[in-house]
Simulated scan of single mutants.
Amino acid sequence: MSPPEEYWLSGPIPEIPALLQPAAHALLQSVREVKEYVSDFPEEKLWEKPFGRAAVGFHLRHLSGVLDRLLTYAKEESLTEAQFQFLKNEGNGEKAPSLQQLILDFEQKVGEALAYFKTIPETILTEQRFVGRKKLPTTVIGLLFHAAEHSQRHVGQLLVTVSVLKNQ
């Protein structure tokens, strides 16, 4: 059986504005690849840091956390104390969820992102937004594009870390 087409080759996602299709496709691809890469990953290695690099658990937590934060900024909202706590603990393996829960959390956050995309009129995509305490300027589409490409970047790092740990 041949692997499924990548999301960007599978046509438009219903109700997602045309200009957000690439970001939606990249997020869905990220979920698919995470599931593939960690399908037989040993739970006991979830928080190992090979060569001092970030753990698989960190990448999975960070995927959910950064997506949540970027969506908050896109909505012109401020981060909550809970979001700051989540950020602080992304790399902490103590009391961390299981591998399967981390995957489910990311998949759920992508679902929330896609639901949000469906509510966005294309006319606001170039509206200015601000990031962080320094209020760094960007746009709605800049935030959403970055959410997608940042997810893909961490999925790539996760793949390398998984490969190293599985072959130790």
Results as ranks from 00 to 15, higher is better:
63 L>Y: 00
18 A>F: 09
97 P>M: 02
13 I>K: 05
62 H>T: 01
150 H>T: 01
111 G>Q: 02
147 A>H: 01
122 E>Y: 05
84 F>P: 03
14 P>I: 03
2 S>P: 15
32 R>V: 11
152 Q>T: 15
44 E>I: 13
78 S>E: 15
53 R>W: 07
12 P>S: 14
52 G>M: 06
35 K>N: 06
17 P>S: 10
98 S>I: 05
28 L>G: 10
4 P>H: 02
35 K>I: 04
103 I>D: 03
5 E>D: 13
123 T>I: 11
127 E>W: 11
165 L>V: 05
41 F>Q: 11
128 Q>L: 08
83 Q>C: 05
104 L>S: 15
38 V>A: 03
61 R>A: 13
151 S>T: 12
72 T>V: 02
78 S>V: 07
91 G>S: 10
129 R>N: 02
18 A>Q: 13
21 Q>I: 07
26 A>V: 13
37 Y>Q: 15
30 S>R: 04
129 R>Y: 03
5 E>I: 09
60 L>R: 02
141 I>K: 04
64 S>P: 04
160 V>H: 06
45 K>A: 14
125 L>G: 12
22 P>Y: 09
124 I>D: 11
130 F>E: 12
76 E>S: 13
24 A>V: 00
26 A>E: 08
85 Q>E: 15
64 S>T: 15
135 K>S: 08
24 A>Q: 00
115 A>F: 12
43 E>H: 14
96 A>H: 11
71 L>A: 08
42 P>M: 07
88 K>S: 09
94 E>H: 00
104 L>W: 13
136 L>Y: 09
42 P>I: 10
17 P>D: 02
111 G>C: 05
131 V>I: 15
98 S>V: 12
116 Y>K: 05
48 E>Y: 09
1 M>C: 12
34 V>M: 01
121 P>G: 12
8 W>P: 05
151 S>P: 04
88 K>L: 11
21 Q>F: 06
25 H>P: 01
86 F>M: 10
104 L>I: 14
76 E>F: 07
59 H>L: 02
62 H>W: 00
157 Q>T: 07
78 S>I: 07
13 I>C: 10
46 L>W: 00
39 S>C: 08
163 S>W: 06
7 Y>T: 11
44 E>R: 14
58 F>I: 03
15 E>W: 06
58 F>L: 12
85 Q>Y: 11
28 L>I: 07
62 H>N: 05
157 Q>Y: 06
148 A>R: 05
129 R>M: 00
56 V>Q: 04
67 L>Y: 07
20 L>I: 04
142 G>C: 10
93 G>A: 10
101 Q>N: 15
40 D>I: 07
147 A>K: 00
6 E>I: 10
136 L>I: 13
102 L>S: 00
23 A>E: 07
97 P>D: 01
154 H>Y: 07
100 Q>V: 10
36 E>A: 14
55 A>R: 04
52 G>E: 07
49 K>D: 04
139 T>R: 09
47 W>A: 03
44 E>Q: 15
50 P>N: 03
38 V>R: 05
